[in-house]
Amino acid sequence: MIDARGLSKRYGDLAAVDDVSFSIGKGEIVGFLGPNGAGKTTTMRMITGFLPPTDGTAVVAGHDIFDDPIAARGAIGYLPETPPLYPEMTVTSYLDFVARIKGVARKQRRDSVDRAMERTDLTGVNRQVIGTLSKGFRQRVGLAQAIVHDPPVLILDEPTAGLDPLQIREIRALIAELTAPGAAQNTVILSTHIMAEVDAICRRVILINRGRKVVDAPLEELTADGTTLEEIFARHTSRDAADLEPDEPAEEAAS
């Protein structure tokens, strides 16, 4: 469903994302890990069409993001790091607007909005103005906005960042429910740096560090020998590991 082919994003000499490739099949739920600034958000933004890659491309649900950007974007439900909300709108009118711009037909729009609110437990606040909602509820509206058009692919960028422990548990349960086998949105990329989240939801892990993919394996395989995700994360992202990267000697020579 998602094919990243050599995705790269360079800003001048700095490579934010460097030749990242992966292929995610239907029904896979992938944890996208990495320290802050590793390039997780940039990679997701390239797949969702917000930023064009400097090099490489991605194919989403059979649509190339360069050749057929409108169809590719239509196949994705995307929750950015800060949920994209209009504070002055009510939950219902906001979701109706999102359904419209995502191309949901007029007749189905009402049903789509109702179902999205049901699935995210928002029905009780449907007439409330978004600006008056708590952070946890706003995050739910963000999730509802991502699923309102029943996209085959879901991309969630740190969906639990900034929430309190109770809200985290709720949102996590919600994501697990939304992406359960048999649900429409069962192909998911979820970025996070919380290991427990990956344990709870994902079945495969892609770890990136300094813009490069360093690990891509099923969760079971990684933890089969008893190592925890934390250890794997630390091993691949610590300064020591970074110092061993081949581009390091060149920098030493320069200094």
Binding site: F50, Y78, P80, P83, P84, L85, Y86, I101, Q145
Partner: peptide, 14 residues
């Protein structure tokens, strides 16, 4: 400033 720019630009709109 709302972050909704990201919603518009990642939707199937021109």
């Amino acid at each position: 400033s709302n972050g909704t720019e990201e919603l518009l630009l990642t939707s199937p709109l021109t």
